[in-house]
Amino acid sequence: MSNVEYPREILESLEDYNIDIRDFLPGHGKGAKLLLDFNKIRGMEDVDGVILKGREIENGIIADVIIKEGTKIEEPVHLCFGVNKETGIQEIFPRIIAEDNTDATVQAHCSFPKANGLIHKMFGHFYIGKNCNFTYSETHYHGENSGALVAPVGYVYVGENSVFENTFYLTRGTPGKVKIMIDIYAMKNSVIKSNIKAFGKCKNDSVRIRDSVFLEGENARSVIKMKAVAKDGGEVLMFGITEGNAPRCNGHVECSEIVLGKGSICRARPFIRAIDPTSSVSHEASLGRFPQKWLDELQAKGLTEEEATQILIEAMLQEER
């Protein structure tokens, strides 16, 4: 399956994120992979310890990714959900299961470079077993026309003593209308790290992200970090929820958003709740402009205020490595 035909526009569209998804094509690299071109599966390759199954349905696919018990994979499992059309509906129903004692990373790339009236929906279920170390990273590019409607929903169960790291980046191009909901249920001694970054670049961009962590097990811990920039009329709402529902659990929500240009709106709603007297949940939120001192520091290096602001946006929305 080394000569998979996959639209060049989709392959190239994530280069601004420093991702060359050609590296993930079947026949390249060592990881398991599944490539979807609109509603057609163009490539699928599994590896020892990883089961990948996909079935086309009317507007998309149902896909299963199963990391078998005890499997530790160094190369990430790669899922590419691309659409190289202006319009249409793509629906994804993934079920991702990491069995006990596994160590794995799943990287999903959702790229719609020509989107102009395109709808992408995802309804995902994640089951992370006991003693796992699992990372899920999702990177989006929706083209430059603010022409996508993207609505992913994810439910995540994280078992005892497991670490679940979630990253979501929507920082290049124009997002269009985006509504994301993630609910994470953390069991005993589990650790949740969720890192969300988004950029609403113009007046037709509206990004609403709700990231919820329910600390259901004793000693479960979580940190949600949400960072966003709204520019030139763009709108961003970050809704970070943490509930401490078990003894000695500990959670923190952090939202920081920058508003630039007329008509832009940033909203942050950190919501925390604790129902166990030994639990501890905290939040912090900041909205507004970059601190003047940061701008001064960069301007003292010869940058104009606009250039300095651009550098600060670049830094704030930089993907973690």
Partner: peptide, 10 residues
Amino acid sequence: WQEPARIDGL
């Protein structure tokens, strides 16, 4: 600067 800002991410 005396206390340069920590511009995380750069």
